[in-house]
Design a protein around this nucleic acid. Structure first.
Lengths: 241, 241
DNA sequence: AAGCTGGGCTGACGTGGATCAGTGCAAAGC
DNA sequence: GCTTTGCACTGATCCACGTCAGCCCAGCTT
């Protein structure tokens, strides 16, 4: 019962107390279901609460005036979503489930109580937020200064590292529900080009992404190619041991 | 004495108490100087404290393997920098003053005390962090899905809005110490192309950026062109009035 | 006075990735 | 069974930007 994805993830950073784990477990039990494709949150929505993903994949995105969209990031089990909207009062992005999703709603009051009563857990929440922001920065750097292939490779490696932390993948590979269209919107490319890049990476013997399955054929080679440095994910092990 | 840029900025969001203002004022008085061009923080640095900028411009950036760099954002008076590094224990980016800079160091202990003793101020700090993240997202969307001219225009508008909030600019324009090289590294372009884009925008009668001065020749036209929506900056006025 | 440096600025040319306009296939719906 | 829909995949063509290679000017050095 204490083994929810969020508890696993946060435990990798902060040694949580019994009480912390109970709070998380209570949240975890309060899950709601969301169908794939129907937006959970849309831009401009007010008084939005946050969620913790328990199962499934979600994406956060923004639409631009010219009709295209940019996916800002994917949330997987153990991730918060919409945390930023709580303080900004208005959501600045849309949130759409990629697959069927189970998630627990976390209201502003829940958050305040966490900050009030479980200081160690609140540190962990802030850590998770910092880590999400670090991923955002890495994403920005990738789109700004890496070419399509490096960017794609980097994304797959980062995603693998995140999934591994919640027990959903290994260094060998992971199950990936993303279409090439979604990948394109996340990487700032066209789906046509994503297709070509995936072929190149496959033919170079680095990664294979087929039938919803990502397989690392040469993990180290790929990491070198993508200039992937996992330091920003901060898996140095728990604080306050 | 209560009129530091940070106090101005946070007051636009949260109605601060006398005590909150005193804490801010004490921080503000504790300034240190930094020379332009010499890094204040470098990637991988441990146990880094945060800073609040009082005067001057700063940029946060990352270098990539192929020798180019991506500027993640600029910090102007009233902005935090390096907040994320506090919880991640290791800085994930470099920080360089663009001009001569005055900034106050904020240690982890200072932050803990703020969270402990001045709850309203801590809300304001978290709001500022959320706003910074929203700007990061907007930056990501720009690089991923907007073309060079739209992106440049958007950047200038956003920067104007931020400066205005701390009394350093108006709807008419602002003083801007950025070279076209810095602009290029921030926008994910080459400096050559930045130059051309700035000329286009000038010839279209939208903005003029010359001699360290940005002048909006047609503010509304530019905002339309750039698809600039200031909602994400959340200037709705203070909470808890 | 001569040289150097750091901006801004420019034309010619090359290219990574977008766009267009498809094909093929498997699963779902009627 | 036939049609529709969604996704993977492809070749041909185009163009937004990058790269290269320079010029010019202002402000510093020596």
């Amino acid at each position: 019962m204490f083994d929810s994805p969020i508890a696993r993830k946060l435990s990798a950073f902060v040694a949580l107390s019994e009480e912390d784990l109970t709070v998380l477990s209570d949240l975890h039990d309060r899950r709601r279901q969301f169908a794939a494709g129907r937006d959970m949150v849309h831009e401009g929505q007010k008084r939005q609460s946050a969620f913790i993903v328990a199962k499934g994949w979600v994406c956060s995105y923004k639409n631009t005036a010219n009709g295209s969209r940019q996916i800002v990031g994917f949330q997987i089990p153990g991730d918060f979503l919409g945390l930023r909207s709580v303080l900004l009062r208005t959501s600045d992005h849309n949130i759409e489930p990629v697959t069927a999703v189970e998630a627990s709603e976390v209201t502003t009051d829940d958050l305040l109580e966490i900050f009030d009563r479980t200081p160690r857990l609140s540190t962990a929440v802030l850590w998770a937020a910092s880590r999400d922001e670090a991923m955002l920065v890495e994403h920005l750097v990738g789109i700004g200064r890496r070419n399509a292939a490096e960017r794609t490779a980097h994304f797959l490696l980062e995603t693998a590292a995140r999934l591994k932390l919640v027990g959903l993948g290994t260094m060998a590979g992971f199950a990936c529900p993303l279409s090439q269209y979604l990948l394109a919107d996340a990487l700032g490319l066209s789906s046509v080009h994503v297709n070509r890049v995936l072929r190149e990476l496959r033919e170079a013997g680095l990664v294979t992404f087929q039938n919803g399955q990502v397989t690392f054929d040469d993990f180290d080679g790929l990491a070198t190619f993508a200039d992937f440095d996992r330091a920003y994910l901060d898996h140095d092990g728990p604080l306050f041991k």
